[in-house]
Computed example of a mutant assay.
Amino acid sequence: MSCQPLLEVKALTKHFATTSGFWGKTKTVRAVDGVDLTIYEGETVSLVGESGCGKSTTGRCLTRLIEPTAGEVWFQGKNILTLSPEEMRQMRRDVQFVFQDPFASLNPRKTIAQILMDPLIVHGIGTPAERRKKVEEMIEIVGLTTKHLDRYPHEFSGGQRQRIGIARALILRPKLIVADEPVSALDVSIQAQVLNLMQDLQRDFKLTYLFISHDLSVVKHISDRVAVMYLGKVVEVAEKGALYRAPKHPYTKALLSAVPVANPDAVRERILLEGDLPSPSNPPSGCTFHPRCPSCMDICRTTTPTLKITDEGHYVSCHL
């Protein structure tokens, strides 16, 4: 892993305007609310949190699949959010996305060869013969064979389709891959195969990953660092070992206490959070976690904490 930042996210924000009720009252949904994150070359940073916390929206915003409301996303010295459409098209050679649903993300009317060749055509890479050769090489790299190239997506299993999705993202030789829940729709045995494939590809192609997931067992297997999100904000960032060994934020402690353990005789104290996840259209004042926090103090109800370093490389947004 390099000490050089590949991606720096500063105060990334995405608000959605929604209307509800008979009079069409407009509300603002704060899906992502000031995210700061740094990803270094060659590492895997996992973004975790419960459903609805803004993980996927963050991934889509920093690749401009969704246009952010505010903030900065610096990739190799350029702010992605200020690039023109043509400049962004060129940038996409270096930043690719792997989607959660390996079936919905593949065009059912195209063969696998056509799907993998499309990025090369869009970016004007090679002659038709050279493109075909690249496609054949890539399909074998992800564990399939050239005989699969003339088939359609519906002819493959979920694990095979996700391998095709990874091949499509990899064929342009990107530097950063944003993987949004890439194994959540797969069986456990297939999850392990795809995760091992991603790790092999990271080593062979010097890739950097932003891995978005809600499964802390999967995250522990693949990550170098972990960022924990709650209600649109990053509340803790740390090296994997430090986070799993000694989490500092009450929300992180609650998440880790819910992870199943392999030993049936092991005794673990489960931290049960009271109440439901607040609505992002009406977040609580102060620390957004304070209504569910077992260690809530008076300052938590009025003052929003900032992400501060506590130990080397360990950042926490908490008043405790």
Rank of each mutant, 00 (worst) to 15 (best):
F75S: 03
Q90E: 13
T58N: 00
S46A: 15
G77W: 06
R60V: 03
V98T: 06
F75D: 02
I80E: 02
L47Q: 06
F97Q: 08
E50H: 06
S56C: 11
P85N: 02
S46D: 15
G34W: 01
E86G: 07
V98S: 03
P68V: 00
S56D: 11
E72D: 13
V98Y: 04
T69R: 01
T44G: 03
S51I: 10
M88I: 09
S46G: 15
K55Y: 06
V95M: 15
F75G: 01
P68S: 01
F97H: 12
P85R: 00
E87V: 08
L62K: 06
Q96F: 05
T58P: 01
L47S: 07
E87N: 08
C53K: 02
Q90T: 12
E87D: 08
C61E: 02
G49Y: 06
T82A: 10
R92M: 04
K55P: 09
E86H: 14
I66C: 09
S56Q: 07
E43Q: 15
T69F: 00
G42P: 07
L65T: 03
K55F: 05
T69D: 00
T82W: 02
S46R: 14
I80A: 14
T58L: 05
A70T: 08
A70W: 00
I39D: 12
T44L: 04
I66D: 11
R93L: 11
Q96C: 09
R89P: 05
L65G: 03
N79Q: 09
V45C: 13
E67Q: 12
G34L: 04
V45R: 05
V98K: 04
Q96G: 07
Q96E: 08
T69N: 00
T57N: 01
R89T: 07
M91Y: 08
V45F: 15
M88Q: 12
W74I: 15
F75I: 05
Q90H: 13
W74Y: 14
S84A: 13
L65R: 02
C53F: 02
E72I: 00
E67P: 10
L81I: 02
K55G: 10
K55A: 10
